[in-house]
Design a protein around this nucleic acid. Structure first.
Length: 509
RNA sequence: CGGGGCGUAGCGCAGCCUGGUAGCGCACCUGCCUUGGGCGCAGGGGGUCGUUGGUUCAAAUCCAAUCGCCCCGACCA
């Protein structure tokens, strides 16, 4: 690493400490210096997203959207495999719909965007822009469901929703965000609960095997659960600064919405019953999670399974003859890799040095880089550089023969290695505090896993005093072997009263 | 909504205190030269200084109002 000619200078008399980081600086702010600033710079410089003219809104740029498309594809496949179908419900919802379920109104009223005018005239009834679609879907379900034969009804939709958040952050919390929301209706409480838990597993499988993000599936507290749910389950992940981020949620809505919207069916005995419903969602927030879990001081590191480009080819040459030779060889390699099902990007940009391109693709997180110069062409080999192992360590000379096999294998290794690294990081920063003092220290840099009496008062006090919130009560330990089963009993970490459950507490995004 | 910061070229900023010709770095365009870790040289284009009003012969600069954005809290996927 040399040549910092482009670095912005510090002018005389200015306090260096408070200098804003110029985007034109070559080097990223490091994660250790300012994690938040690092995150913003990565999102902008990797061209995942940009700020919109409206506060808190985000423009998802092509590279960011390609990543989201990969996420959608991986999830959609899983949803279909578990019997769900996609549909599209309207963006605008009559205001009265939101008001039908009382805990739902209470939870969402403060963050609604409301349309009061249309076609130049004031509307008789204001319309809200959906913050989530339980109500409008509930309305339809009430019309569609008549018999137990109509159940279960398993529908998902990919869309965007709007919540008027006070404090926003690219991908992690924006006014409008893209997501999927699944809505199902069942004949029995048991089926609804099974569906709720099944989706937790679907998300956990996606998180681990596609996003390479270790997650802790668990149940939310009363205070943290979805407005209108009987029970909320969530997957919690640890970001690179030790803070928690909710990866996805799955709610058992019981009969609350079925009663509010009169979703009823006739059972086999001819008795009229209310349905049992669920909803579950995962948003573009996971893009933020992927950035914050895997990224390093060079930029983004994308898990191979989701990366828009899994391998980038950087051709190197001096003369025109070399260029012709190198390009011919590069195209041939590209074709072979594409045939092997690998997503390849060939960097044919003129006038940029190889060094610039290396840095550029590292910023964008492409998992593997293939360098090809005249020397390699002569030797019928290439240089492969792993994004997860910066510098010489991650570089290897590989013969061109069998390159497709070698690349596929390396991509698999990178995928595994990213998950392992993130898991070890979380384990190293998850402690089981013996007392409140240890607890307070633990949540300053990671997760605390401790006994909790279950009372909201303790949860509230902990939040006031340490800024840590109750993330979840971890579920079945087979979902995550790194967290011990919460069997037995102990004393609440805050009040000392008997506790039967262990919870994860952490500062959260 | 409370606290802090900032609006001057596409981006990042200086200039403002002490009023008088619009400035720097990066990016961009053209040409040459280069290319194995963020090349170099030469030339060039681009700004009603957030908006409105006031003071003044004269306002980026002084005064007032207003709008917007970012960061830190409270609320949340």
């Amino acid at each position: 690493m040399r040549g910092r000619a482009g670095r912005v200078c510090v002018w005389p008399g200015s306090p260096e400490e408070s200098l804003p980081r110029a985007m034109t600086e070559r080097k990223l702010t490091t994660r250790a210096e300012d994690f938040s600033e690092w995150y913003n710079q990565v999102v902008l410089r990797a061209e995942l997203a940009d700020y919109a003219p409206v506060r808190g809104c985000m423009i998802v740029r092509p590279y960011g959207w390609a990543l989201w498309e990969a996420i959608m594809a991986a999830l959609d496949k899983r949803f279909k495999a578990t019997g769900h179908v996609n549909a599209a419900f309207p963006l605008l919802i009559p205001r009265s719909f939101i008001e039908k379920e009382k805990s739902h109104v209470a939870g969402f009223s403060p963050e609604l965007a409301v349309v009061t005018h249309g076609g130049g005239e004031e509307l008789e009834e204001p319309l809200v822009i959906r913050p989530t679609s339980e109500t409008i879907i509930g309305h339809s379900y009430a019309k569609w469901i008549e018999s137990y034969r109509d159940l279960p009804l398993l529908i998902n939709q990919w869309n965007s929703v709007v919540r008027w958040e006070l404090r926003t952050r690219l991908f992690v919390r924006t006014l409008e965000f893209f997501w999927q929301e699944g809505h199902t209706a069942h004949a029995t409480a048991e089926e609804a609960q099974a569906e709720t838990l099944q989706m937790v597993e679907v998300y956990a499988d996606f998180a681990r095997n596609e996003a390479a993000v270790p997650v802790i599936p668990g149940r939310k507290s009363e205070a943290e659960k979805f407005a209108g749910a009987e029970v909320t389950y969530a997957l919690e992940a640890m970001m690179g600064d030790g803070k928690a981020l909710q990866f996805s949620t799955s709610h058992n809505l019981g009969q609350k919405f079925a009663k509010a919207f009169e979703i009823k069916y006739l059972d086999k005995q001819g008795a009229l019953q209310h349905c049992w419903t669920t909803s579950w969602g995962l948003s573009t927030r996971v893009v933020g999670a992927i950035i914050m879990v895997h990224g390093d001081d060079q930029g983004l590191i994308l898990p191979p399974r989701l990366a828009p480009y899994q391998l980038v080819i950087v051709p190197i040459f001096k003369t025109d003859e070399e260029k012709t030779q190198v390009f011919e060889n590069a195209r041939q390699l590209s074709r072979r890799l594409v045939d092997a099902g690998i997503r390849v990007k060939m960097d044919e940009r003129e006038g940029l040095s190889p060094g610039f391109k290396f840095n550029d693709w590292e910023m964008r997180g492409v998992p593997l880089r293939l360098e090809l110069g005249p020397k390699d062409v002569a030797k019928a080999s290439v240089v492969l550089a792993r994004r997860d192992q910066p510098g010489k360590e991650g570089k290897a000379f590989v013969p061109q023969q069998g390159i497709d096999v070698a690349v596929a294998q390396l991509l698999g290794e990178i995928q595994e290695s990213l998950y392992g690294r993130a898991l070890r990081f979380r384990q190293a920063r998850t402690v089981e505090p013996r007392d409140y003092q240890e607890f307070s220290k633990a949540v300053e840099r990671g997760f605390a896993f401790c006994w909790w009496c279950g009372r909201s008062e303790c949860e509230e006090k902990i939040k006031e005093e340490t800024k840590a919130t109750m993330r979840c009560i971890p579920l079945d330990p087979t979902l995550d072997r790194t967290v011990a089963p919460a069997a037995g009993s102990g004393e609440c970490v805050y009040c000392g009263q008997p506790a039967r459950e262990k919870a994860i507490f952490a500062r959260a995004y």
